[in-house]
Amino acid sequence: MTLEARGVRWHRGGALVVDGVTLTPAPGSTVGLLGPNGSGKSSLLRLLSGTARPDAGVVTLDGAALGSLPRREVARAVAVVSQHADTDTDIRVRDVVRLGRIPHRGFLGSAGAGDEGAVAAALAHTGLTDKADRLWHTLSGGERQRVQIARALAQEPRELLLDEPTNHLDIRHQLELLALVARLPVTSVIALHDLNLAALFCDEVVVLERGRAVAGGPPREVLTAELIARVYGVRALVGTDERGRLSVLFEPGAPDATS
């Protein structure tokens, strides 16, 4: 049992942005959400996190509809790292990560014994222990992204939802970040643009096109030249490298009419 979406559909501002998607990630797996801009990746993540309610279909957590559960209970199981989390306040890294403990606290916010431990573990996991006292606005884009992930980890979730976490990161940080997420003992759903990264780190991928899930399964089976041409409108060479890993090379120009 885990976080699942069954036939969810969502109209947002008059447009149908998610159209009958079913997503049932295996516990502990890393699932990539792929698809061009506007295909509904972020919208699907909003439905999964409970920030938006589907017009049809249902998102369930351990079999119970997300909308029927108290928000705090959801927040103790599902953590979200969104694309644009920023603040004006002069907040320190450790305090950002501490935010993740809020759903675990009582009404008056008394800190539990596990709180500081979870914060320290989250900082260590993301390699931020020695940056814990830095101020948020002095961090680089990649560090900020890692702090948000540390904050999400401090929630001690079973499910982690990430919306394009590798945006604005250099290649090394992209690799480090996804390796970190794939290593975590949680179920992760990640919206991604980079097909090679998806192939490297995801157990399964789901490809969205105009709100519909058009393909799903292990990256090796899903990411074919035909699919990439159809969904992204791009010509690609899909092969395996000498170590047996999938690699996608793009070619300029429109795809052949035949594909």
């Binding site: 996190s49 969104s82 920023d86 603040t87 907040i91 809020i102 606290r105 916010g109």
Partner: peptide
């Protein structure tokens, strides 16, 4: 009493919502 709720708002409404 709402101090933690107010803390949760520091990264915007979406983050606050995801913190319960």
């Amino acid at each position: 009493g709402s101090a933690h709720t107010l803390d949760a708002f520091s990264f915007g409404d979406d983050v606050a919502a995801s913190l319960g």
